[in-house]
């Protein structure tokens, strides 16, 4: 079983991302949506922590674009997905866990 964890909070405001990362089992994925997308910006305080984790990391492209980061540089191992990609992730993983 592998879990898709969805996080929607900015790590600069809430601890949700680190709370998720400290429990999520290896082999799963983290999808960052809504305000959580700011975590992936290269050079930011959280991007490195994300790519060294044991989960694949995805970020929702339209939420990045909405916040002015459509063309932002991201660490190489972080993958952008659109809503179709979001749907595909939901089907590829066995279980979806949204962390609020």
């Amino acid at each position: 079983m592998a879990t898709l964890n969805i996080v929607n909070k900015s790590p600069f405001e809430k601890h949700t991302l680190s709370q998720c990362l400290s429990r999520a089992a290896p082999g799963g994925a983290i999808l960052l949506i809504e305000d959580a997308v700011c975590a992936v910006i290269k050079g930011g305080a959280y991007a490195e922590q994300l790519v060294t984790g044991q989960q694949k990391v995805y970020v929702l492209e339209p939420d990045l674009a909405a916040r002015g980061f459509a063309d932002a540089a991201l660490p190489d191992s972080i993958n952008r997905v659109d809503y179709n990609g979001f749907v595909d992730l939901v089907t590829q993983y066995d279980l979806v866990h949204s962390w609020f």
């Binding site: 079983m1 429990r23 279980l95 949204s98 962390w99």
Partner: peptide
Amino acid sequence: KIGALMDAQDVVLSF
């Protein structure tokens, strides 16, 4: 051990 507990589920509802 929390991750394994979560991974063992069919449905996770978080509130």
